[in-house]
């Protein structure tokens, strides 16, 4: 699991969250719609994440971490393609083994989809994303819950790390926590979670919280951003319709 470095990433540019959300979904939709041997057809689509990474100067190190984390899955499914496909396919002027083309296409597709999602995450702070989700008519309750969960994830991960470290220091030869102890250890974490929820609720009530009144800023979608969004998604769709 990859975590904290993303917290320190500075949001460098102003990109409208709704624009990037719509563009990312269209992009992934287009990438996923290509057939299993469309390696060459998919290649030009890699320009979008590459251009975004260069233009917004997104941290390569973080992107590398995300891609590496997804590798085991991509390799497992990719290898299954090597096992189950047994035919030759015409690739330009040569007959090549279809299994390798299917394998490469799967890995490329997976990489492009992950890159697009990572670009979305790295260019858009969660609060702005929440505003975009609200303007897409996602229920307010779910958006607030998203913000709350995200707020506490890193705090709890730190707490879990401390718990594990404390156990490992007392039981140095153990690779993992004994099941008989694990239940009460995580159980305690859960009880602390409940206490924290209680405190959070009381703090929210004291500040006059209500689901309807909670302010989430929705950025105005300017004509320029709208045109940028429509032009980009039209390019993706036209490319998909032309290259079949």
């Amino acid at each position: 699991m990859i975590y904290p470095p993303m917290l320190n990433i500075v949001q460098r540019r102003n990109i409208h969250p709704l624009s990037i959300l719509i563009i990312t979904f269209t992009y992934i939709f287009v990438v996923a719609s290509f057939h299993s041997y469309a390696f060459i057809e998919l290649m030009p689509l890699s320009l979008y994440p590459i251009a975004m990474i260069i233009f917004y100067r997104l941290p390569i190190r973080h992107i590398k971490h995300v891609l590496i984390a997804s590798l085991p899955f991509a390799t497992a499914i990719g290898v299954s393609q090597l096992l189950f496909i047994d035919e030759h396919i015409l690739f330009f002027h040569w007959y090549i083994e279809a299994r390798w083309l299917a394998f490469s296409t799967f890995v490329l597709k997976n990489t492009l989809a992950i890159l697009a999602a990572t670009v979305l995450f790295l260019t858009t702070p969660i609060e702005q994303l929440a505003g975009a989700l609200l303007s897409l008519r996602i229920p307010r309750f779910l958006v607030i819950q998203l913000l709350l969960t995200y707020r506490y994830i890193f705090l709890f991960l730190e707490e879990a790390k401390r718990l594990r470290q404390a156990y490992m220091l007392r039981a140095p030869r153990h690779r993992a926590i004994k099941l008989s102890v694990w239940g009460s250890l995580v159980g305690h974490l859960l009880l602390r979670t409940f206490d924290r929820a209680e405190r959070v609720y009381e703090a929210m009530t004291l500040r006059g919280f209500s689901i309807q009144r909670m302010h989430i800023k929705i950025k105005r979608w300017t004509t320029r951003e709208m045109i940028y969004t429509y032009v980009t998604i039209t390019l993706f769709i036209v490319y998909r319709l032309v290259v079949i």
Partner: peptide
Amino acid sequence: EKKLPLMGVLGAFVFAAQMINFAIP
């Protein structure tokens, strides 16, 4: 409304609990 923060923190708890591995006997 009390359920809202509870759901939020329990969601975060699931993430944290997944980090603590246990040995399968």
